[in-house]
Simulated assay, not measured.
Amino acid sequence: MDSNRYLAPTIYSLISITIFITIAQAICVPIGSSRSDPAPTPKPSYTLSQDSDGSPLKDITGKIGDLLHSAIANNPLTGNLDPALMKMCNATDNQELCITELVPLLNGKNDADSVIRMAVKAASDYTNLALMEAEKLAADPSISSRLAGIFTDCKDSYSDALDNFQEALQSLPAKDSGTMGSMLSAAITDFSDIDDFLEGYTTTLPEYNAKLVKLTSNCINVTSEVLLARIFAATTQFP
């Protein structure tokens, strides 16, 4: 997905909003004081403020320029993001999450193995946070023994997911994309199992799981993108 697809609507919206606000602020429209005030309402006066050079549009265009510069610099899908990393993240189901979670971990690296490793690390780190939350919930003395047992099952599933992430990383040096995909899919199943355990209960864990499924799906997407790129590179070597 091309980043311009996101940038163009932003630019058009900023232009429209800026022109509207600037003209609205420049128009003086006095309003009558109250319904009981018999004094006549003054006739509205419409005056565009002008710069010293007599051009009322100079201020408008200046504001538009400032806003456009800010929009381009702060757009999460543009800016100084490496094109190779952009391509990989655009291949995922959750592009913005891919960028925000991976960029801080990569430290400028953009090779395929580093991106896959850091994508799995991001999912693993967040799984550890969910596991700590499950441990805290299970240790709450005010809950029933049944609910404590459910939280214990949740802890086991999070631990299984961490094992699956570890096995996925172990298959990376051999470029065993089949095993990696299977392990990542198994982790998603672990998170779905936890949601099933907690059906009918109100806890914070489903919120963790929703993000974990997105993070893990991104891992699968990136792995698939890398595999396709390698297959294409191999086939183009032969006539």
Score class of each variant (00 low, 15 high):
167 E>L: 09
133 E>I: 00
219 C>D: 08
134 A>H: 01
70 S>M: 10
191 F>L: 03
138 A>M: 12
89 C>M: 02
175 K>G: 06
86 M>V: 01
40 P>W: 06
22 T>C: 08
182 S>T: 13
121 K>L: 14
204 T>K: 08
49 S>G: 14
57 L>M: 11
104 P>S: 14
129 L>T: 10
64 I>Q: 01
213 V>M: 10
42 P>D: 10
133 E>R: 04
145 S>H: 05
181 G>K: 04
207 E>D: 13
92 T>I: 05
48 L>F: 13
21 I>A: 11
112 A>V: 03
99 I>E: 03
221 N>W: 02
44 P>V: 06
185 S>Q: 11
142 S>I: 05
119 A>S: 15
50 Q>I: 11
193 D>A: 09
7 L>F: 07
51 D>M: 09
78 T>Y: 13
133 E>S: 08
104 P>Q: 12
9 P>H: 10
101 E>I: 00
138 A>R: 12
41 T>P: 02
29 V>A: 10
83 P>R: 03
131 L>G: 02
2 D>I: 06
144 S>M: 04
190 D>L: 01
202 T>C: 03
44 P>S: 08
115 V>W: 06
214 K>R: 12
205 L>H: 03
10 T>P: 00
76 P>A: 05
195 D>S: 07
84 A>H: 13
127 T>V: 08
99 I>W: 04
80 N>I: 01
23 I>T: 07
162 L>N: 10
